[in-house]
């Protein structure tokens, strides 16, 4: 089973929650693996005292110019819908950051002058922690194809952890990377705050998940700090509220130190328990 933990906006406590949930489940003898799919800003690993077990380079395929047979016809630049190729009269220039790896230029080139070769975009790291593994996708600076790395990280997990409960810590927002981190999941837990920002972003996230046809649950973090508009919204949309995590500066302090919160704060632990039960019931 795959569960994605997502939120419309950043800073709602998504990562804290994912890490604590994974640690809690592992402690209760569940076979669980956590994936940090926020490949632009992976942070989960900061909260896990564990050992790096492996590091795999993540690549993408891009064309490389082989000039020996090239006739400079310019077909490749014309074909590329992403403007990643510039064809001059005596040189073909390729911009790998713009390439989407569609293979069209390579396979349609009349002289086979653009063979596809792999090029590094980031890495996938495996950390072993107390009772569970953390897989982290990390995009190299200056690279733009987050979606490709997210897909590769999910593949890595699908191969290595077939029967485990897979928790995916998604990137914030509602655009392509989030969809990639969600589209294969059985359940999506949306983390929000009881504020107008939280509600606005939750609404966007719910609309997206509806189009994808996903089952949802909502977790309200920093409960008590704001109003009840988020609760009213969930009720109207018939989305279950899985847990309400109390607003507590002690949680923030714990987080600031990079420590596991549920081991220290009782009400937080109770909320994690509710989430764990919700996932269990869902299975």
């Amino acid at each position: 089973m795959r569960v994605t933990i997502a939120s419309g906006k950043g800073g709602t406590g998504k990562t804290t929650l994912s890490v604590n949930l994974a640690a809690y489940l592992a402690k209760h003898k569940k076979d669980v693996v956590l994936a940090d799919l926020d490949v632009e800003e992976p942070n989960s690993q900061l909260f896990i005292i564990g050992e790096e077990k492996s590091c795999t380079t993540a690549n993408k395929m891009v064309p490389h110019w082989d000039k020996s047979e090239c006739t400079y016809c310019g077909e490749c630049a014309d074909i590329c819908n992403f403007n990643a190729i510039v064809a001059l009269s005596d040189e073909i220039i390729i911009y790998p950051q713009l390439c989407h790896s569609c293979y069209a230029c390579s396979e349609l080139c009349p002289t086979n002058s653009l063979p596809m070769q792999s090029e590094r975009i980031g890495e996938i790291k495996l950390f072993e922690s107390k009772g569970f593994d953390l897989i982290e996708g990390r995009l190299d600076l200056g690279q733009e194809m987050a979606v490709g790395l997210i897909a590769q990280t999910i593949d890595f997990i699908d191969k290595g952890y077939e029967d485990s409960l897979k928790l995916f810590d998604a990137p914030p927002g509602t655009s392509c990377p989030v969809i990639e981190a969600t589209k294969k999941s059985d359940l999506v837990l949306l983390v929000t705050e009881p504020t107008p920002f939280g509600l606005n972003d939750l609404t966007l996230a719910v609309e997206t998940m509806k189009v994808l046809g996903k089952k949802m649950g909502v977790i309200i973090n920093r409960y008590g700090i704001g109003d009840d508009a988020v609760e009213a919204y969930c009720k109207a949309e018939h989305i279950p509220i899985v847990a309400k995590i109390k607003n507590d500066k002690a949680v923030a302090e714990c987080y600031a130190r990079g420590e596991l919160v549920y081991e220290q704060i009782e009400h937080f632990k109770a909320s994690i328990e509710q989430i764990a039960n919700f996932i269990e019931d869902y299975r």
Partner: peptide
């Protein structure tokens, strides 16, 4: 925009001054 990807690069282009907002946490 948040992150370090294309939208951020886009939001930074042509800036005369950048104001970074951070918080005193590990992340």
């Amino acid at each position: 925009s948040p992150g370090i990807g294309c939208p951020v690069i886009s939001s930074l282009s042509g800036a005369n001054l950048v104001v970074l907002v951070t918080e005193a946490t590990v992340s």
